[in-house]
Design a protein around this nucleic acid. Structure first.
Lengths: 135, 135
DNA sequence: CACACAAATGCAACAATGATGCAATTAAAT
DNA sequence: ATTTAATTGCATCATTGTTGCATTTGTGTG
């Protein structure tokens, strides 16, 4: 899977910014923040363009957004091989990274009578294995 | 339980802003945003003072913060009768309200080998019973 | 009760982020 | 190659979180 294919499949124009974002995300393979992606691309694009590209990719469900505690925002590809619609996220407090836990089961949400649940977001915080091994 | 007691118990000075915030939160009994609380108090205090009061109350674990999707921020009392350290939150997409689901069981987090989990945040989104009944 | 000191407040100011309007540029279908 | 709609860059604004600083206030001490 390459950026061009992804854009084509979703009827999106092949623009430099979108291709850049997708290329970085496909290369690195883990959730990234806007700044992390921008650094990889040497800040070639305007902040607004970036912002709008993410918005488009989110709308087309090519990527999803993970927010931790109102400050950490990461984007992850939806179309990885292991991607599951429902999955939890792990946030490492030490290295600030986010990991999609595609293998961890997510139970059906239980809500009080009369309530209707449509989505569940689970964020598990802690320390990732890499950080645990590098004290 | 009244605001004065709460502040006294946590060695906090009895200030008008803190008392106001706690008073509104105790009265209304459900998670509230900064703006909702400020409106109840007729904007009597500066934004910074508000911000710092919340920070203090959070540090003392008198209240906790619930963030939904990076934009909705609500504060809830920790010391309600039914309060549980671990609990999920329900977010109603229609009325923008948040409810602490103290009765809903929260499973121990499952994480990959080598990872260490310390906290879990669960936000269930949907429609609350009030909004479901008022179409 | 008055005093003193630490804490809290209000104000100005700044950074980061999300968002919009608009003119210039570009992708891609014809 | 031409045309048109979409995208971009820029200016700009709103909101939120944050800090510094001078002023005010709460509260324990005498």
């Amino acid at each position: 899977m390459n950026p061009q294919e992804v854009l084509y499949k979703h009827n999106l124009k092949k623009t430099a910014c979108r291709e850049g974002i997708l290329s970085v995300m496909l290369d690195l393979g883990h959730p990234l923040s806007e700044n992390e992606i921008r650094e990889e691309l040497s800040s070639k694009f305007d902040r607004t363009t970036f912002y709008r590209s993410f918005k488009t990719l989110l709308e087309k469900r090519i990527i999803h957004k993970i927010v931790v505690d109102n400050q950490v925002v990461k984007y992850a590809l939806d179309n990885s091989v292991t991607y599951k619609e429902k999955h939890a996220h792990f946030y490492c407090k030490k290295c600030d990274s986010v990991i999609c836990l595609d293998d961890i089961p997510v139970n059906e949400p239980v809500v009080p009578n009369g309530f209707e649940a449509s989505e569940t977001e689970i964020i598990i915080k802690g320390v990732c294995s890499t950080c645990k091994n590098t004290k």
